[in-house]
Design a protein around this nucleic acid. Structure first.
Lengths: 243, 243
DNA sequence: TGCACTATTTCGTGATCACAAGATTTTGCT
DNA sequence: AGCAAAATCTTGTGATCACGAAATAGTGCA
């Protein structure tokens, strides 16, 4: 089975084992990135065999990757066990926002608790964040939507990972995975102009000042800006693009 | 239904689905219940073949169940991809508590938002909660630890499910799955006496009064009682119990 | 008795097939 | 042309085998 058929969405299919990663983990990571960067439209069906063909792997790793993503709520399973990118509802969006507001500011606090007293690590983190934020501005200027989404998540999770709070981080990641496809739909409709008002500069400033309260507020504000203004559209525009 | 020619190659083609549930979901549910009710000790290894043998199924459903549980953090995977019940650390426990405090009180609020204006549904919920709470008291009196853990989770999730906030509920469930095995260890060491002080009566009273603030406080207090007093023990006491 | 080395077992992963049921396309009749 | 029935394709699930690596048991030497 030497089917080339590479997908323009998932970059690069697997060889056998890359960087200590097993095949199904590679598939999972690519799929997760595609979801977080909004490259998969809600309603899009995901099948084991099709996914396997797209990655030029056997069915097994595709199955495992899909199973994991369904488990964390990133993919939705119908009553007939078909799998697809979940459609967003107003209710779900509300819950995702509530959960993000409940968890992510706490991660900011946890970052200061973890490395607030270690100037070197804090400085290094800030340096990375400034760099990522610059890339983010580039992506916005160029109207590169997937690039924006990917870089935005990199900014946030770089910050969050510095807290070392892996348990909470994985909860947050599951929320981002659920939100990703929908965000792309909305921003794609409104244009990247609606993205310029993020609170990343304020987040960085609060880190530099080691001001936990300001940090919490900035993160919460960033979540509000990203989700309040971006309401659910009434036309889901289910665009199932096969193969 | 006319049974078609049975295959001699595949032994159980007939009994694949039980009550609309597919085999791997059945295995998952059983394993999840065992985790939440604390019947699996931290450190216990879980292997595909052994689990399959215990449930008298093939390896495939066991694999899928394990994969899902690893995905939600209920099981831990070593660097050599061995799977086991996660060991608790003080840091992890702290994160679980923070996340629970951030999410579960909100679910209480959401319950009042959802059915606070529908007296019949609210009354029905309260009735169920009272019944479950009575069972809980029985379990405590009899020193039935798994029964306590199972009934306690039933109390909380019966309440939470009334909110309809499935997104947040699944996050909370993942936290309970991580906490279950450790709780059992701790309570098993301290005895069930440390459990009598839960806030369930206060939760029910707050529901009856439709007092969101009191409800939030009661849920938070219940979490504190369940987790503050129960610190991490230093001796893991690995004990294997098959099901 | 203690310890290094080897043999055996156990394990996760990947591959491939069978099967039933859902989904889709084609066909056939009015 | 319209619509229902039938044939075909697709899909998730389960079963089973192969393979290499990790873990355990076993052995022999000191």
């Amino acid at each position: 089975m030497v089917s080339p058929a590479p997908s323009e969405i998932y970059q690069q299919s697997a060889g056998n084992m890359v960087s200590g990663q097993v095949i199904h983990e590679h598939v999972y990571d690519r799929l997760r990135d595609a979801l977080i960067s909004g490259q998969l439209a809600p309603g899009r069906p995901i099948s084991v065999r099709r996914l396997a063909a797209q990655f030029d792997v056997s069915a097994m790793p595709a199955r495992e990757a899909i199973r994991r993503l369904v488990a964390v709520g990133a993919l939705e399973m119908t009553e007939t066990r078909r799998v697809m990118i979940a459609n967003m509802t107003e209710e779900k969006l509300k819950q995702i926002q509530r959960a993000r507001l409940a968890l992510e500011p706490q991660l900011g606090e946890a970052v200061l608790e973890a490395i607030g007293t270690q100037p070197r690590q804090l400085a290094k983190l800030i340096k990375v964040l400034v760099k990522v934020d610059a890339e983010l501005d580039d992506a916005i200027r160029q109207g590169d939507l997937p690039g924006y989404a990917r870089t935005n998540s990199e900014f946030h999770f770089t910050l969050y990972r510095a807290s070392g709070a892996h348990v909470i981080i994985s909860l947050v990641e599951s929320l981002w995975l659920q939100y990703g496809p929908h965000m792309r739909q909305i921003v794609g409709r409104l244009g990247t102009d609606c993205l310029v008002d993020d609170q990343h500069k304020e987040i960085i400033a609060a880190l530099e000042a080691k001001d936990a309260e300001a940090l919490v507020n900035a993160i919460a504000a960033d979540i509000h800006i990203g989700m309040d203004t971006l309401n659910v559209g009434d036309d889901p525009v289910i665009e199932a693009k096969a193969s």
